[in-house]
Simulated assay, not measured.
Amino acid sequence: MKYKLLATDMDGTLLMNNKALSSENIEALRRAKEKGLEIVICTGRPYVTVKPYLEMLGFDCWVVTNNGAIIRNKEGEIVSVTLMEDETLGQVLKILEKDDVDYHVSDEKFTYIRSIGQRIRLIRSFLLQTEMAYWKAYLLSIWAVVFNGSHKKVDFSSFVNKGGRAASVFIYSKDRKKLENLKKEMKKIKRIDLTSSGIDNIEILHENATKGKALERLSNMLNIEKEEMIAVGDNYNDLSMIAYAGLGVAMENGEEEVIEAADWITTTNENHGIAHLLENCPDIYEKI
């Protein structure tokens, strides 16, 4: 049996710490694609922040965004959306409205925010991680929030009543104690998946909107068995797909729980772990 599909996380996995996509990883993925391996980008990010990287790869691939809630085919068309239930979303927003914490809500089209200034500052800090000049990060963050058309400022107290929907809710804070307290409250809510892609955030989705569930849907769409899938990641939101795939791979820089759950461990994201996996894991070479 050949492996037929490789699902890779982005931040901390495919991307380096400065959010760059290395030429080593690009070339390795292109070679794997030429050998017949379906490539799937599987990330917690919304689609608008993934598109520039797809252009760098230079080939069409399946894309799973919002941690598994939204699946797009090679043409960029949405083929599956798993939204949070209205009642559940209302409960989540009610808790968040009591806290002075930064958060946003995403569906398949937009990112909904309560403060333009707060969102600009968050994106600017994210861009500065890429070693971008401050003035450029400042201008790009304004463009992304105000002029790009992907953001909408809303009143979250009436969001659900006005027809607002959510594929995912992303909560960000440098205050770890605050995040832990929020997690405790959120765990009381039924039918949600509570995860994170870093120590400074919480991500909330429908319980059937995980990366692992997305791979299960792709299995049915593409007629590929889970034993024929490879999944690579570094953080808690990658655990479900690493557990689902026939070959679960953890990054060396991954969380301890992710490393323990994996079948194979590759090098760090700074050392082009995806390329290392495709070039050095014996099972892949035997089966491609």
Rank of each mutant, 00 (worst) to 15 (best):
D107W: 01
Q129F: 12
I95W: 07
Q129W: 11
K98T: 03
D107M: 00
E87P: 08
A137V: 06
L127M: 11
S115I: 02
I95R: 09
S125I: 03
D100E: 14
M132K: 11
L128T: 11
L89N: 05
Y112K: 02
V105A: 01
F110G: 01
K94I: 01
M132F: 09
S115T: 05
K94W: 08
I120M: 09
V105F: 02
Y134R: 12
G117Y: 11
G90I: 03
A133C: 06
K136D: 15
D102V: 05
W135V: 12
Y112E: 04
A137R: 08
S115E: 13
H104V: 00
R119F: 06
V92I: 15
L128H: 11
K94F: 07
R124C: 10
V105G: 02
S106P: 06
A137G: 15
T88Y: 12
Q91N: 13
Y112H: 05
Q118M: 12
H104I: 00
Y138I: 02
W135N: 14
F110N: 07
I116F: 10
S115L: 06
G90F: 09
R119G: 03
G117D: 15
V105Y: 05
E108Q: 07
D99Q: 10
Y134I: 11
D102K: 08
Y103L: 03
E108I: 00
S115N: 14
L93G: 04
D107A: 01
Y134W: 12
E108T: 00
H104W: 10
V92P: 10
L122A: 14
F126M: 13
L93R: 04
E87I: 06
T130D: 12
I116C: 06
I95A: 03
I113W: 10
V101K: 05
R124I: 04
K94R: 14
R124S: 10
T88W: 12
R119P: 03
I95V: 08
T88Q: 13
L96E: 01
S125K: 12
L89Q: 05
R114M: 04
E87Q: 10
L93W: 08
E97K: 09
L122K: 13
F110T: 01
L122Q: 15
V92M: 04
K98L: 02
Y103P: 03
L93V: 03
E97C: 04
M132V: 04
L93E: 07
E97R: 09
E97S: 11
E87V: 07
Y134N: 10
E87C: 05
E131L: 11
E87K: 11
F110A: 02
E108C: 03
H104M: 05
S115Y: 10
T88A: 12
L122D: 14
V105W: 02
S115G: 05
S106Q: 13
D99C: 01
V105Q: 02
Y103C: 00
D102S: 13
K94A: 10
W135T: 13
A137T: 07
D100T: 03
V101H: 06
